[in-house]
């Protein structure tokens, strides 16, 4: 609610103040948009311009060369570039990011929503209380404590030990699966989200219980009630949690970095971007001779323009997600705020 009452807004002093606030806020908006514009601009600059006229916002001779370079795996001389990222074309990384994000979305939302619905509406009060602590407790524990044990757990699931234990009195071992180097190693740990659980539960708590009872009297099963009555009502919350889950999975770097380190054909864009940036910035003039791989890279026209092109490609899908969910987000945020 505005602090300045509507009636007094015409007084000159108040109008000056409102103008000052508006200018301050618009500066903030522009500062926010500028790096985005800078990224797009740099991605369309030819390499020469990156070096010779680095501070122009509008490229003198816009070119899509850096995008073309990323989309191919060979440079102009028909040689493969001796830098990790260029072993695979751009669309491979894009596909990987999409796969990881949608798998996470498909696993996490139903599992989390169902658990939140049960805790909110189906369980006895006692069970609900304990389950709430069970589900929310990890939110209070810094996640980094579990980096190593989680890696061990994923390397031969479900045994968090160094090796798979043998079945006593036999030569056999217990069954185990390795999720290192697979998408499941990223998706499974993210299949439940305490934060989204909180949002879902907060929403289901606001729905009247009579709604469920009415459905039950009509003979609907619990699953039908959830699917036909609860979920349509929950659309704003699903939009918010879905958006957060998607962008979270898309932006995740540490997970894929640890789990998919050795499987380059499975890298998402976040890891590919890091690798390209690392190749570009690892060399310092003080180190003497330039790494031959980097030399190939720069002589074939890869520089910050290609890095920014990769950054643009990485940002487009979440920008699209933002456009799709914009309205629902604006509505849903109020719901999230009420209970969060």
């Amino acid at each position: 609610m505005p602090l300045i009452p509507q009636v007094g807004r015409r007084r000159p002093k108040t109008r000056l103040m409102l103008l000052a606030i508006a200018i301050f806020l618009w500066i903030g908006v522009l500062l926010h948009l500028f790096p985005v514009a800078w990224m797009i601009s740099a991605s369309f600059k030819p390499t020469l311009e990156i070096f010779n006229a680095p501070f122009r916002l509008i490229p003198k001779e816009p070119s899509a060369a850096s995008y073309k370079l990323l989309a191919s795996t060979v440079n102009a001389n028909g040689q493969s570039l001796n830098v990790d990222v260029f072993r695979y074309p751009l669309h491979i990384y894009l596909q990987n990011s999409i796969k990881i994000s949608f798998l996470t979305l498909l696993c996490q939302l139903p599992i989390t929503a169902m658990a939140a619905y049960a805790v909110s509406k189906l369980h006895s009060r006692r069970a609900a209380k304990w389950l709430f602590y069970f589900f929310m407790g990890t939110l209070m524990i810094p996640g980094q404590i579990a980096i190593v044990p989680r890696f061990l757990l994923l390397s031969h699931f479900p045994w968090p030990t160094r090796t798979v234990p043998g079945i006593p009195f036999t030569d056999l071992f217990f069954p185990s699966w390795s999720f290192i180097g697979t998408y499941w190693g990223i998706v499974l740990p993210a299949a439940f989200s305490a934060f989204n659980f909180l949002l879902f539960k907060g929403f289901f708590d606001t729905l009247p219980t009579e709604l469920i009872e009415a459905a039950r009297i009509d003979g609907a099963s619990e699953l039908t009630t959830l699917r036909a009555i609860m979920l349509p009502l929950a659309r704003p919350v699903i939009a918010v949690t879905g958006y957060f889950t998607f962008t979270g999975a898309w932006n995740d770097f540490l997970g894929p970095w640890i789990i998919l380190m050795s499987e380059q054909q499975k890298w998402p864009l976040s890891v590919a971007l890091y690798k390209l940036q690392w190749a570009l910035t690892s060399w310092q003039p003080s180190q003497g001779a330039m790494d031959p791989a980097l030399q190939t890279l720069i002589s074939s026209g890869v520089g910050y323009n290609a890095l920014m092109a990769l950054a643009v490609v990485e940002s487009i899908p979440i920008f699209i997600a933002f456009l799709i969910f914009r309205e629902q987000l604006m509505k849903g945020i109020q719901i999230a705020g009420l209970k969060g």
Partner: peptide, 10 residues
């Protein structure tokens, strides 16, 4: 305008 997202590593 404020919440236009950019991927985090980007």
């Amino acid at each position: 305008l404020w919440f236009i997202p950019v991927a985090s590593t980007a």
